[in-house]
Nucleic acid binder design. Structure first.
Lengths: 333, 333
DNA sequence: ACCAACTTTGGAAGCGTTTCCGGAGCTGCG
DNA sequence: CGCAGCTCCGGAAACGCTTCCAAAGTTGGT
């Protein structure tokens, strides 16, 4: 038994012939080591837990995709934990369902507060944060403030002075801070450009396309609507675009729209946006896990760069005289 | 130990007071049963494997979302296996990485052939197919042919006679049959409507928005382009829409577009489509797993209904005289 | 008051590995 | 030719549970 165990585990001190014999027998019997017994006897679980607040949103799915790829390559299994609303969240940190089941935990885009961190510590495993802004753990993310600046600065550069912002919050957890950097960026960019702040130009809605559409409606209901809109995320921007179309406004002639993320549909919708390498971040988080598991010290965290992708949804504002748009036309569609 | 075990497992024959004492102690020590040891000693793994060919595509992510929800509710863990390209696939079925690690396996939207089925049988666990057309296992899916008919029949009903089809194949596995029912439906609908088949009107491309755009370009390059296009999936339809917009064609006045899936963006893009309850299918698959694990006999499989969702991308064809469109206008955007 | 039947408890035997350790066989050097 | 020092191999303990079984304690009917 001992020898077979060594042979299967590829340990030294097994004669080549013997090893071959063991392997052959295993093949013949379609034998695989029982992971349970193996772990019981000492090894690691070879499993990594991944916690996501939303599974079917592109951002999280893409992140998971990258993560899974590198973990799978390292022969680690991925255990998926969906922590959607506040109840799930509470339950997750109280029961710690991943306890004793994983060697490491990756938390995707989910702020973790101090009491929660204490609970996680109980698990006694490595923790990596991806797509979030948790400084307490090694992390991989973008600089939200920088990304926001790229978006808003672009609008400012084009000459816009009346810029609206559609900010988002998590529909399930309205009190979470979702990317506060993106909001901060807006304020800073305007201040720096000497544009006075107008609270009416900021609309905060739950994340989602339909919400984005509503938000845009609200902006259009202002006596003087903005000439450009900065949305916290592409999906929200898509919604805004729908409202503008329905209103018969032309993009970008009448109003510019910029998003963040570079969602695959942004290309199809010709949306100017700030691209972030989502899948890549997942991969990097995976590598980070591997390194941690390999015993290397915690890296400091990685911030990946974002970049403005200019498409057809932004342009300089129409000259003063043409606003509101001269000739109203029927919806283009 | 025996008593504690029973108390923790909620088995009978433990005095209420004793049980309480055990639970209290466990709480105090932040103790959790070691799943490994527990399984070793006899239990199930309480884990379900999920095999998906694409993680970040909405369809698969939504399916996974529903599945995870019901499995999590039943306190089962979800082990994620991404089987993307042919190499992954080969490797998965050869090594069976989920072997001995799960009590059941859910295969999402992935045809499995006979030799592969033999390999899976080796795992000796329940298998459920979701979103695919595998009759060999209990399954949950839609009737692709019926969905296709709903889409094409709608176009026919509107009066279209020249209807194009954008069919898709899996970019990673060009030889897989992807929803052959959707193709069959097209042929049947046309035949039934007495419309002669024109092979030039069918374009097959790898799945994806950009591919859809290319496909539409090809259709537009025909001497007489179609007056309506049936896309196998919404994402492909989005691409087609982009091409049409760039060509300055109006939807639906100049050309109608219909997709399948009811992707969340379909609503935002005002795309007529055939809706299928994706998340729901995941949930149903999850329930099916639960039932199987509970020892109930294999159900026969469930086919969930689809329904046409009419939005703004379809309309009766322009009268003959106006095709090609009378006044070419600049791109509407 | 006695016995059958039941409830509750704890002892002990696995479950399938890994790893420590000692023994057997071989090699090479003095 | 003898012995130190290797390489291999296998016995056995340990990992942390679950469950079978027997023992002890309780209850209720007669």
């Amino acid at each position: 038994m001992a020898t077979a165990s060594r042979a299967l585990a590829n340990h030294p001190h097994v004669a080549t012939a013997t090893r071959a014999r063991v392997l052959a027998a295993a093949e013949e019997l379609a034998y695989v080591v029982s992971p349970e017994a193996s772990r019981l006897a000492g090894g690691a679980t070879d499993r990594v837990g991944v916690v996501v607040p939303h599974i079917s949103r592109w951002f999280f799915a893409a992140m998971l995709d990258g993560l899974e790829a590198v973990l799978r390559d390292a022969d680690l299994d991925v255990l998926l934990y969906h922590v959607g609303d506040a109840a799930d969240r509470h339950d997750f940190f109280r029961r710690l369902p991943a306890r004793r089941k994983v060697d490491a935990l990756v938390v995707i885009g989910l702020p973790v507060d101090e009491p929660e961190r204490e609970r996680l510590a109980l698990m006694g495993v490595h923790i990596v944060a991806a797509g979030g802004q948790i400084e307490n753990y090694p992390y991989v993310c973008i600089d939200d403030a920088a990304a926001g600046r790229q978006a808003v600065d672009h609008l400012v550069f084009l000459g816009h002075r009346r810029i609206g912002m559609i900010a988002t919050l998590d529909p399930e957890q309205p009190d979470w801070p979702v990317a506060p950097g993106r909001t901060r960026a807006y304020a800073e960019a305007l201040t720096e450009a000497g544009i006075p702040a107008d609270p009416a130009l900021t609309v905060t809605v739950p994340w989602g396309g339909v919400s984005g559409a509503d938000a845009m409606s609200r902006l259009l209901s202002l006596r003087t609507p903005p000439t450009a809109v900065y949305a916290h995320s592409d999906e929200v921007a898509f919604g805004a675009v729908r409202t503008l179309r329905r209103a018969g406004l032309r993009i970008p002639e009448d109003i510019s729209v910029v998003g963040i993320d570079d969602h695959p549909h942004a290309e199809l919708a010709d949306l100017t946006t700030v691209a972030q390498p989502v899948r890549r971040q997942g991969e990097l988080a995976g590598r980070m896990v591997l390194r941690l598991l390999g015993g290397e010290a915690d890296g400091d965290g990685i911030t990946v760069p974002t970049r403005l992708v200019v498409r057809g949804s932004t342009a300089p504002p129409a000259r003063r005289s043409t606003w509101p748009p001269a000739r109203r036309r029927p919806a283009a569609r």
